[in-house]
Amino acid sequence: MENIVEIRDLSFSYPRSSKRSLDSFSLEVRRGESVGLLGPNGAGKTTLISFLSGLRPRSDDRVTVFGRPLHLLGEELLKIGYAPQELALYPSLSVHDNLIFFSRLACISKERQRAQVERVLEVVDLTSDREKRVAALSGGMKRRLNLAIALLNEPELLILDEPTVGVDMMSRDLIFERINDLRRSGTTLIYTTHYLEEVERVCDSVAMMNLGQLIYRGRVDLSILVQNFKSFANSLSLESDPDPQGQEI
């Protein structure tokens, strides 16, 4: 099956930082695959996502999506759906106004806009809250709206950056349910989190990161993941083990 995302030997440091946020990082994601990007705070997950979402310079040929470097994608970028970790919404505007704005940016034709907005509202169960100002929504509802915006353009690749932060149980279950619906429909998914349980629920495979490096890439198996993370942490503290056990990179 073709690779949707290919990252080859990518390194990156933030200005005025001696630490590498990404250190010779490589990753391949196949079409229809659902990859959990797992790692603790500071692992480099969000930095990696920022390359895929276009925030970092797109001219880097080491990152390709749909088989082409990002800067050559043009309007194909609109086939990527992205829900950032922050609630990137306009709080003073209504749910509907937010969705209309992003549907326009996604170049959805006027005729399709209404249908798409209704569809995503239904997907995230916010149809009855469409006229509410975003500021008046609960944390969980905001998260669902954040997800809805990413779904507007029916993306082939969906990138979700910690989409359940600060969400109540009900909203969390709903989000997982919808993500699994998308998986079944063939959407390629990159899902960042630092919770193993979430990876288990919505991902086929996992890419485990720490300190900007890929420390495990393989199937979702709780025991293997725990073992890998522990051995990597040990290798760092003892500085003696060059080949951590159990890696399936």
């Binding site: 979402s53 276009g54 994608l73 043009g74 970028l77 990137a88």
Partner: peptide, 9 residues
């Protein structure tokens, strides 16, 4: 928001 908007080409 910038992250999100930049993602729209």
């Amino acid at each position: 928001m910038f992250k999100r908007l930049l993602g729209y080409n």
